[in-house]
């Protein structure tokens, strides 16, 4: 097949036509910790300022201190808007309301230590839970707290318990890390699973998740095998993650019926947008939306929370 450039020359373009004026749009790029970021904007600040200190330290922790190695890709099409996925990864409490597996096996419960740390704009969030000595005691208290719901099932037992007996391979006791970088990048650690999740919006009603699942070059065969087991937590067939696709689908079904309208469900959703050291809050979701509104230059709705905080 003849190269495209030959076709252009043979088309006898007018003298004023210069191929140099018709190239692809140039993307500004910058890299950190092996992640490559791009923007079409000349206004975007330097990458490290854009990401903020918590993103940088978590990228160092997850991708730099050991040399990562791709062990597989996972892809999932979710019939929900890409911003709903951004809410999903920023709120630190839905896991304990939605994911029976996560609660029943103590992977993440509302009583655990942890919290959210944001960048200066509130757009990027490090959402994390930390193991502590009190977890076993708190796990015992959950039965009462969850009575009347079907989301805590202490009777749930594994025929092969190896999946739930994971010993963390970093010795910092951080059980889960969801680092969300505005607008479409997530770096996630759930137990010993490490993954980059990249969102590809597919119109207003769908988003495709491209997940790059990581091991490390220093992994022993046993560590690799344990990652091939732990993958059952994450991705489109993960005991935890598969439920998120369904949750987004349901919210989207409800939201798209109300075109031109808006609905906000708040859990004490007023006040200053700031870091916390507890999990039952949704402050970083508001951080996301505040930044989105600023970027899109949307006017503020007169009714919403203006007395408390200029959002």
């Amino acid at each position: 097949m003849a190269p495209l450039s030959v076709a252009f020359i043979s088309m006898r373009m007018p003298p004023s036509f210069d191929k140099k004026d018709h190239g692809l749009r140039t993307l500004r790029i910058a890299a950190y910790g092996g992640l490559i970021f791009g923007t079409y904007s000349d206004q975007t600040e330097p990458l490290e300022d854009y990401l903020g200190p918590h993103s940088l330290s978590q990228i160092q922790r997850l991708l730099v201190q050991r040399k990562p190695k791709v062990i597989g890709y996972l892809r999932q099409k979710i019939p929900g808007n890409w911003k709903l996925y951004n809410e999903n990864v920023r709120d630190p409490y839905h896991g304990s309301l939605l994911h029976t597996f996560q609660v029943s096996f103590g992977l993440q419960t509302p009583a655990m230590k942890g919290g959210i740390k944001m960048d200066k704009d509130g757009k990027n969030t490090w959402n994390h839970s930390i193991l502590s000595a009190d977890d076993n005691k708190h796990q015992g208290d959950l039965a009462a707290a969850y009575s009347g719901t079907d989301k805590f099932n202490p009777g749930l037992k594994l025929n092969d318990p190896s999946l739930a007996q994971v010993k963390l391979d970093l010795d910092d006791n951080i059980k889960t890390t969801i680092l969300s970088m505005f607008p479409t990048l997530i770096l996630a650690q759930v137990d010993n699973t490490y993954a980059v999740r990249h969102l590809r919006p597919k119109g207003p009603d769908a988003v495709e998740l491209h997940i790059t699942y990581l091991g490390f070059e220093s992994d022993t065969p046993e560590q690799l095998q344990s990652r091939l087991l732990s993958v059952n937590f994450i991705g489109p067939s993960g005991y935890i993650s598969l439920e998120d696709g369904e949750a987004l689908r349901l919210v989207q079904e409800g939201a798209k019926m109300r075109s031109g309208d808006h609905a906000v469900l708040e859990m004490g959703g007023i006040g200053v947008i700031q870091d916390t050291d507890y999990l039952s809050q949704e402050i970083s979701i508001r951080g996301f939306w505040r930044h989105y509104h600023r970027m899109m230059a949307f006017g503020l709705d007169a009714g919403i929370n203006q007395q408390q905080e200029p959002v």
């Binding site: 062990i71 890709y73 749930l156 999946l163 990652r227 091939l228 059952n232 991705g235």
Partner: peptide
């Protein structure tokens, strides 16, 4: 690349894969 979408390496894990569907 070795990572599966779903991986059960013992008969117990096969049972576990459907345990939450059954419950």
């Amino acid at each position: 690349l070795p990572a599966p979408l779903m991986g059960c390496y013992t008969h117990g894990m096969v049972k576990d894969r459907v345990a939450m569907l059954i419950d």
